Simulated scan of single mutants.
Amino acid sequence: MTDALTVSNVSFAYGRAQVLRDVSFRVGEGEIATIIGPNGAGKSTLLNVIARSHKLRKGTVSVSGVDTSGMRQASVVKAGCVLVPEGRQVFSTLSVADNLQLGGYTHRKEHKRLVEEVYGYFPRLFERRDQLAGTLSGGEQQMLAVGRAYMSEPSVMLLDEPSLGLSPQMTAQVMAVLGKLRRDRGLTIVLVEQNARAALELADRGYLLNGGEFLLEGAADELRDDPMIRHIYLGGAASSEPIAPSVDAALERELSDET
């Protein structure tokens, strides 16, 4: 499988505070990888370094074989890697439609097609297309943040805590759409999540980041069965129980709607 994203020996510090320590991982085309870990582990910093919101000081990052290590953030987006930041960061005083238009600045000629695809994945955004983004619910704003990122037609989408502040039902809906984007578009997704249950249910691979280093990595189902992961992040649920039935149910509904 061809690597869509390759991160090699990336380190990062805020002043003297070392946050990332020689972090390396690969994500294949069309895979979903999730990074879990405690607050302060360096998860958000890692995504920001990959997307070049933070300057890369040590190590290399490649997107679909193209070295993006020295690029500015806008060039990384053009190379096919886009970040959906924590807190959504939509333009609150602009309409839904205007937010999507700004997200598609690198693909202006494809705007009509891309916006129609966004509305297809998120019908509620179509209903709210003339509404100011700041008046949307938290879940609707998260839909808009994902849709805005999709407008750049990325090959790799990075998402930082997409379930933050959302209800379980809305979390399931957002996760279901991410699964559809991977299935329909072959989109590669890297997901940083505190909701380890939903993330590991959706992902192919998982990584446990703590102290700026990966302590565990492997197939998502292997991490779900790891005693430490189950005890700390999954509440010690028995291995025979589904990790995130709400996500499963949402995915099944999405599939049944298409048939």
Rank of each mutant, 00 (worst) to 15 (best):
L102M: 12
P85S: 03
G65V: 02
Y105W: 12
S62Q: 11
S64H: 11
S95D: 06
V82L: 11
H107G: 04
C81I: 01
G104P: 03
V76P: 01
L56K: 09
Q101L: 11
L94G: 02
G80F: 01
V84D: 06
A79E: 00
G104I: 06
N99S: 01
R108T: 10
T106A: 13
G70M: 05
T93G: 07
R72F: 05
D98P: 07
R57G: 15
L46G: 04
K43F: 07
G59C: 04
V66W: 01
G103L: 03
R88S: 00
D98K: 15
F91W: 00
Q101G: 13
P38D: 08
T68G: 05
V63N: 03
S69C: 00
G70N: 10
N48Y: 08
G70T: 03
G37V: 05
R72Q: 12
N39Q: 10
G65H: 09
M71R: 03
N99T: 09
G40R: 13
K43V: 02
L83T: 04
G42Y: 03
N48D: 13
N99L: 05
T68A: 12
T60P: 05
S92H: 14
V82M: 08
E110I: 00
I35Q: 11
L100E: 05
V90R: 00
I36M: 11
M71H: 04
P85T: 06
S44K: 07
G42N: 01
S95G: 10
N39S: 10
K55M: 13
K43I: 05
T106E: 04
I32R: 00
V90A: 01
G59I: 07
I50H: 08
T93N: 15
A97S: 11
V96C: 12
P38G: 04
R88G: 06
P38V: 04
V63W: 04
I36N: 06
C81Y: 00
D67T: 09
N39F: 03
R108Q: 13
L46I: 06
G80T: 05
I35E: 11
S62R: 13
R57M: 10
E110R: 15
K55T: 12
G104T: 03
V49K: 03
T93H: 15
V82S: 01
K112G: 02
A97R: 12
G42S: 07
V66L: 13
K112Q: 14
L94W: 03
S69V: 03
G104H: 01
Y105R: 02
A51V: 09
G80S: 04
A74E: 09
Q101H: 08
N99D: 07
T93P: 02
I32D: 02
Q73M: 14
A33G: 09
L100F: 02
V82R: 07
